[in-house]
Design a protein around this nucleic acid. Structure first.
Lengths: 339, 339
DNA sequence: CTTGGCACTCCGCCCACGTGACTGCTAATC
DNA sequence: GATTAGCAGTCACGTGGGCGGAGTGCCAAG
């Protein structure tokens, strides 16, 4: 059993280590925090914490650093997520408020989060699968080239180029457009896709082929949810904290650029409520054994949930990261919910 | 005056140094290249090259490394841009050919270039200013919210949310849409913007305000060319070559994330024909004194030119970079030209 | 349970030294 | 005049020993 004070010592160790980057010793602790006890007492507590594997000494007679397990306890029990400062909250409102479309909003979001946390920030595109079709537009670029534009009820726009086997004139396209809108409007993307496929069969011969191509394109389009896309910012922060990674920062950067890794990780974190934190070894399966991920979901009504988070060394300021991620996610949910 | 062979020696030094990362000595040269002369002769040539400041010795009695000036001569006179291998050319065709829209094409492009060159790749969005308006679409999201969609003749789609002061119903929007299309279709973005502003004045009172908002939005939209946007990939390559930067790789990464720096750099390179190469100190004004940039323009008919390039340490494989950048830019020009 | 004191451990730093990889120079050769 | 061989000189780099400092663990006393 670890005493109350021992945990306070753990908190002190985590905080000091995160700040100073150096193993923290008993003397440092009594100097910087006002426990009413002497260094020797702290040493006894530290021995306890070491027994519980919450802290470890890099070598004999050196200060202690938190283990992954120690960080875990810190995050679960000890971290106070202090709300952002008024200035920071204001920055969120103004900086994100200027966005004109989803792309820009998400772009600004990652940049903001990476600045607030001084970590690499990642945001996942909201999924499209549950959004409803508001409008379908066809624009002829050339006789056999039609640009299909899909507008969802939340204002997201997706485009796709369709190559037709035979030319289609403007009038034909206009009729097709009306037909498509009639069939698809109001349905979710998934439903619209099947409805369109069915429609293809009843079409008159003359336009069957054209309709087929278009339906297939749109169906395809609906399926390719954008939720498998990430926006990333703040890679420089990863480089800044390079010494915290055991030299294999390259692997981390490659994983980030792969995107798939982070997406799978987010997938696993989807089950977690609130702000989820994955620490060090817990990510070993993803080749991210030295990194921690702090993320949370943000919800867009009528869509699947997507995630927003930061990626950094295990030695990161969890309190700050959690606070920033939470605040921005709340803002996003609110803003996207309105539109 | 430097002799023919001296230049060959310079070429050998650049090639070996790029490959081995280590200062190259006279002995290494005679071993790896078959000049018909002894090491002593090479040393004489090296003394010449050093006098011309084309190479330098990090310290007395060490091999030599090329100076920025040496790289310059190499790039201008000695580098043979050997065409890509058949496999690589094939990769360009297939990998980029799968793209469905401009966003995806550019995304794939940077990823491909960064893989081909093993450097950080950058591509600039084609400018919008000279594209022509093909179609304007208005979609009502809420009584006072209208999504304006702008489709250019090259298939680029831009969206923008407009907040109206007073509600507008579907019928009103339909009339407005027709009006806008009448006025703007076929004009360049810039012309369309002014035409729309003018139109606002003649509008009947009832819809003046709505029209005004929309016109302003579209005009605004047309002005915000996307050419101030960059797509980046391969940051991991920068980290991989970290030791080539004098430790300030952080500055480079920040410059890349700023985007503005690269955009200004591209602006300056716009004057250069063909494949432009900026080496080391030549970029000092941009805080990129240790980096080289290889870039070339790709043209989209009816649009301003934009650029594509790679950013890496001065010690990079210029031949390979130039070849890859050229090949991909040609492919892009060709493909975008068709649509 | 807490505290002061003390011996012990081990990292990091500095320095000295030997080794190896070059160069630059000179004198001889083609 | 260009090229070559040989030789002395220079400097980076790796190695090993010695030293100081920070911090622990333990013990005995309060």
């Amino acid at each position: 059993m670890v005493s109350e004070r021992s945990l306070a010592v753990l908190r002190a160790i985590v905080q000091d280590y995160v700040e100073s980057r150096e193993p923290v010793g008993s003397k440092t602790i009594v100097e910087r925090h006002h426990f009413g006890v002497s260094a020797a007492t702290i040493r006894n507590d530290m021995a306890l914490l070491e027994e519980e594997e919450l802290i470890a000494a890099p070598h004999t007679s050196s200060g202690r650093i938190p283990t992954d397990k120690g960080y875990r306890v810190f995050v679960d029990q000890l971290a106070d997520i202090r709300p952002l400062s008024a200035t920071q909250r204001h920055a969120i409102e103004t900086f994100l408020g200027e966005s004109n479309d989803l792309d820009e909003l998400l772009g600004r979001t990652v940049r903001l989060v990476s600045q607030l946390t001084r970590q690499l920030a990642v945001v996942q595109y909201p999924s499209f699968a549950r959004a409803r079709v508001r409008h379908v537009e066809l624009v002829s670029l050339a006789p056999t080239r039609v640009l299909c534009i899909l507008i969802s009820d939340s204002g997201q726009v997706e485009q796709r180029l369709a190559e037709l086997d035979q030319p289609a004139d403007e009038a034909t396209l206009a009729r097709l457009r009306d037909r498509l809108n009639e069939v698809a409007a109001g349905l979710t993307m998934a439903d619209a896709a099947t409805a369109l496929s069915a429609e293809t069969e009843h079409a008159d011969r003359a336009h069957a082929e054209v309709l087929h191509t278009l339906a297939a394109t749109l169906a395809d389009q609906a399926k390719i949810t954008r939720s498998d896309r990430l926006v990333v910012a703040g890679a420089a922060n990863l480089v800044r904290t390079e010494q915290d990674f055991a030299g294999n920062i390259l692997g981390v950067m490659e994983a980030i650029e792969e995107q798939v890794v982070i997406l799978r990780l987010f997938g696993e974190m989807a089950a977690d409520e609130g702000i989820a934190v994955r620490i060090g070894r817990e990510n070993a399966a993803f080749g991210l054994g030295d990194t921690s991920v702090v993320s949370t979901a943000f919800a867009v009504p009528g869509r699947d949930v997507s995630r927003l988070g930061v990626v950094g060394p295990t030695r990161m300021d969890y309190s700050q990261s959690m606070a920033a991620v939470r605040a921005v996610a709340r803002y996003l949910s609110r803003t996207l919910g309105e539109s």
